[in-house]
Amino acid sequence: MDTLEIIKPENKVYGKPRLMNDNPMHYCPGCSHGVVHKLIAEVVDDMGMAEKTIGIAPVGCAVFAYNYIDIDWIEAAHGRAPAVATAAKRLNPDKMVFSYQGDGDLAAIGTAETIHACNRGENIVIVFINNAIYGMTGGQMAPTTLLGMKTSTCPYGRNEHLNGYPLKISDLLVQLEGTCLVTRETVHTAAAIKKAKKMLRKGFENSMNGKGTSVIEFVSTCASGWKMTPDQSNKWMMENMVPMYPLGILKDK
């Protein structure tokens, strides 16, 4: 059978999600953000919630998330997305509200907002991209940067005496009564992506069922910041990031 005969709408098995628009994404080649964006767009659409979803964009690489997924967005100040999401959800309980935050936004400047939103059990989803580096500002040390890992502000490698230890914030959030789902996922293979999508959907369903806060951490890559190819980054992530940030469900109640 000729390829042209296969390429027909009825034979389509995968394509860009309907809620992803055609704006070219500003992310670097191979960036994990794009895949996570696609998953959010798919889950929101699958749930039939496109008209009822409010996304809270962070400061960091995902600051422009609002340019790519066709839902309403609020761009928050650095680290404050969980506070913004708290109000958006409490004032609109019928809406599906999520924040989308990087490691610096969520686990450094916004630690208080993150912990307290989770502790109150806000009915929101926190999508957490952990790539252990500040991408947007050019590759500085993040709270989740691994020991020995080099960044532009720890050029000789992260040193625990100077910089403290990598912050496993999801493990902290597990301890809070307000969280109902805390899980660590990756998006480096099709299988991992399918699994992550299920967790994302579960989190969004939790938020609409009033179960509390769901935190979906994505252990991610930053090819530009790590100074590797995207493929090398995935391999480095599995070899180095995952031992520090083990994958799987940390809490599901």
Partner: peptide
């Protein structure tokens, strides 16, 4: 699935 930029459509 792995394409971050949504460039790929697949038929089967």
């Amino acid at each position: 699935y792995v394409c971050p930029d949504g460039c790929i459509t697949v038929y089967k």
